[in-house]
Design a binder for these strands. Sequence first.
DNA 1: GTATCTGCAAAACATTTGCAATTCT
DNA 2: AGAATTGCAAATGTTTTGCAGATAC
Lengths: 141, 141
Amino acid sequence: MITDMKHVENTTEYLLEHEVKPSFQRLRIFDYLNEKHNHPTVDNIYKELVNEIPTLSKTTVYNTLKLFTTKGIAQVINIEDNETRYDSDTSTHGHFKCLNCNKIYDFSLENSHFNIPDLDGFENKQTHLYIKGICPSCKNE
Amino acid sequence: MITDMKHVENTTEYLLEHEVKPSFQRLRIFDYLNEKHNHPTVDNIYKELVNEIPTLSKTTVYNTLKLFTTKGIAQVINIEDNETRYDSDTSTHGHFKCLNCNKIYDFSLENSHFNIPDLDGFENKQTHLYIKGICPSCKNE
DNA sequence: GTATCTGCAAAACATTTGCAATTCT
DNA sequence: AGAATTGCAAATGTTTTGCAGATAC
């Protein structure tokens, strides 16, 4: 991984702080994002969690992720057009997708000189930087 | 508009140079992208062009855009997760979407200090920068 | 007991696929 | 005629919606 993850320690408190009632399903979905930070799709989350929550429905996963993004504790990643992915790290950071192994890496934007040119009068509320290419592991094969 | 568009003058020649046989439908679809450069969805293109080409099908629009992206004369814009948009300007440039009026603006990345940090060993093949916020027109209302 | 949350089933969209008809040379 | 292109209809996949039952306070 290129950069350190923001990691939430107490999920229940964190949800409450962001006006999200910590139901069992919501806690497990947030924990999944927070612990694996693997940028999963709805289907990834559902398939993994249905093992431990057999009654789970995809509708709940959709509802929960929409709630999380609305409350600002998750962000959408649109690095590929046929799959919506999610990230519980809501800080501004970049995503690198390897075109060979499809793995998604995070990287910090803090140390980069990231100046938006000629944006006078444009108010920047969200920055999404996606880079695609070949990762070091795949390069060395 | 924040930056100047790349504008193709002779569409037929341009398609031939990129190994795309210039059928009537392909010419009209490319011209639409090139003249309006309004980052349309498949549905936008279809609804507009079906007026002048009554037999046009969405399948053809899909086929054509896939061909264009494969041949490198159009690029996909994933600034929003529920809609795939297209741009005939394949140069690396940023996109700004106004959260109020939904208009998408282009901006140049050439004058910015755009240094990807800690990307040693990562080979950058495509850069996509999306910024969302409020545009000047909407701010002044 | 009332609000909220969950999850099923159906609906709504977006995109892809198979194939037959059309067009171009 | 032969090859490529187009377009219809059906299939697939993803996300949303309506509503009824379950859960929480």
